[in-house]
Amino acid sequence: MLHKANLSEIDEIIELKLSMFRESGHMDLLADDAKQRIRQKYIQLYQNDEAAHFLIKDSGKIIACCGGFIKSDIPYSFYKQSYYGFIGDVYTIPQERTRGLATDLTKATIAWLKSKGVWTIRLLASEQGKPIYQKMGFVNTDEMALALE
Score class of each variant (00 low, 15 high):
Asp49Glu: 14
Ile62Trp: 04
Ser115Asn: 14
Thr106Met: 10
Lys57Arg: 11
Asp49Lys: 12
Gly68Tyr: 07
Lys80Ile: 04
Ile13Thr: 00
Ile132Trp: 08
Gln44Glu: 14
Ile121Pro: 09
Leu124His: 15
Asp104Cys: 01
Ile56Ser: 05
Thr109Val: 10
Ala111Tyr: 10
Trp112Gly: 11
Leu16Ser: 08
Asp104Arg: 13
Asp28Val: 06
Ser19Ile: 00
Gln128Val: 13
Leu123Glu: 08
Gly129Thr: 02
Ser82Asn: 14
Asp89Val: 06
Gln95Thr: 01
Gln36Leu: 07
Tyr133Glu: 13
Pro75Tyr: 09
Tyr84Val: 02
Thr120Gly: 00
Gln47Val: 05
Met136Glu: 10
Ile121Gln: 12
Glu143Arg: 08
Ala108Arg: 06
Tyr91Leu: 03
Asn140Thr: 14
Gly68Ile: 09
Ile110Pro: 02
Leu55Lys: 06
Ser115Gly: 12
Ser8Val: 01
Ile87Leu: 10
Ala125Val: 00
Glu143Met: 12
Asp73Leu: 08
Leu18Asp: 06
Tyr83Arg: 11
Ile43Pro: 00
Glu143Trp: 09
Ile87Thr: 08
Asp49Phe: 04
Glu9His: 09
Ile14Leu: 03
Arg97Ala: 06
Arg99Met: 03
Pro131Gly: 11
Met136Cys: 07
Asp33Trp: 02
Trp112Gln: 12
Thr120Gln: 13
Ile62Leu: 01
Ala51Gln: 04
Lys61Cys: 05
Ala64Ser: 15
Asp89Thr: 03
Ile63Asp: 09
Ala64Asp: 10
Asn6His: 13
Glu23Met: 09
Ser8Arg: 04
Cys65Leu: 07
